[in-house]
Design a protein around this nucleic acid. Structure first.
Length: 345
RNA sequence: CCGCCCUUAGCUCAGACUGGUAGAGCAGUCGACUGUAGAUCGACUUGUCCCCCGUUCAAAUCGGGGAGGGCGGACCA
């Protein structure tokens, strides 16, 4: 694979890359540049995480050395979303779920390294850097950088601001050439690009995944069960949620069903060499088969493909993609039970 | 250490002064209408009124104590 192909693989299905030329330069300079993505083990993982994780398969295939950070300290620093006592359990659950998603995406999870925040964030080089950054960053700068990531409340804690600076520092601590995450992470990594060089580290290249729309329209909401599909949802539950999803005919913008197909189902089906089939009554024109997303979207936008026909097909495809992850989690029910005692205990 | 304020439905809050066991908006559920969903109509559901004790025939409401949260003041050799 040449540099152009590797770069294209890294950049596909992303929301933004800063800067693509830097990716090319990385591949030119090193045979195996490093990339990292961090997750604070807070709430249960869902399909949104899956679409973001799926890209790690692209990274691995492009020859990046990928590290996944399980940011356990962050999980508590962000408004104590995860109590200290549950950090171990949730970290284990996250790791297993993420490995399952990577594997379901067609990559070997053994090729991805896992690190927990507490393994290095309490050590001296890191903490000294943190204090330096703390001393040099204004409240409003940190506030702005983390506003899309850290929980915003009427009475914000200092932890949220420290969280933001720590994440910027994580990039350097893990020696990552590429910082990857959802587009909501943009503010933090822009701070990293701005501040890390001042502390003698290199400026990280950033790759951002899109944030998918919720099934009820608008943004996906963790607190709204019907707006997202969980990794543990049964086929029936997936079907119910997709059936109830906001899905205006002919409209691709903000259409969660189409987005799930585009960013999750098609890439995974493509990896498996499998087409996406829409079963449709003869009355409406009979079955349709799609090899790629673009053809489906143009049929949908033109009105050729009706939401009522698309939904059942999308539901079973999504269920199929999620299935191995759900299986994996159900093999070890104690993972979820101890990570979320209130809901799975 | 001192003082003041807040705590009512999943969420945001009204009701408290002038005691009679609780309301609105949003959310949610269900119908109607669309070959999906949404929007729009129509209907419906939801509560340890933060906890304990007391006054009273009767306490979300009054009195005392406590918990949690917020704000301010003081202290600064």
């Amino acid at each position: 694979m040449d540099t152009a192909e590797r770069t294209e693989l890294v950049a596909r299905f992303t929301e933004e890359v800063i800067e693509e030329a830097e990716i090319e330069a990385l591949f030119e300079a090193s045979d195996e540049p490093t990339a990292y993505i961090g997750y604070a083990p807070t709430g249960e993982m869902h399909i949104g995480h899956f679409t973001t994780m799926r890209k790690l398969a692209d990274f691995v295939e492009a020859g990046l050395d990928v590290t996944v950070l399980i940011a356990d300290l962050h999980a508590h620093l962000d408004d104590a979303k995860s109590p200290f006592e549950l950090l171990d359990a949730r970290s284990q659950y996250y790791r297993t779920a993420i490995e399952a998603m990577i594997e379901a995406s067609g990559a070997d999870p053994a090729g991805v390294s896992f690190v927990r925040g507490t393994e290095f964030q309490l050590e001296e080089p890191y903490t000294m850097d943190l204090y330096r950054l703390l001393a040099e960053t204004t409240l409003s700068r940190a506030q702005r950088a983390g506003s899309e990531v850290v929980r915003q409340s009427e009475n914000p804690k200092l932890g949220g601001l420290v969280y933001t600076l720590m994440q910027a520092l994580d990039v350097a601590a893990l020696d990552a050439d590429v910082a990857y995450g959802g587009i909501d992470q943009r503010g933090i990594y822009m701070l990293a690009r701005e501040q890390l060089p001042k502390q003698g580290y290199h400026k990280p290249t950033c790759v951002f995944a899109p944030l998918l729309s919720g099934l009820s329209g608008g943004k996906m909401s963790a607190s709204e069960a019907g707006s997202k599909i969980n990794l543990t949802d049964s086929d029936e539950t997936v079907a119910e949620k997709i059936t109830g999803a906001y899905c205006p005919a002919g409209e691709a913008e903000g259409n969660g069903v189409l987005e799930y197909l585009r960013f999750l189902v098609f890439p995974v089906f493509d990896e498996r060499g499998r087409p996406f089939v829409v079963e449709r009554p003869e009355e409406y024109g009979g079955d349709l088969t799609y090899e790629g997303y673009d053809a489906l979207e143009s049929d949908f936008v033109s009105g050729e493909l009706h939401p009522a026909d698309l939904k059942p097909a999308a539901a079973s495809a999504i269920a199929e993609v999620i299935d191995p992850v759900r299986e994996r989690l159900s093999e070890e029910p104690e993972l979820l039970a101890s990570a979320y005692p209130e809901t799975h205990g």
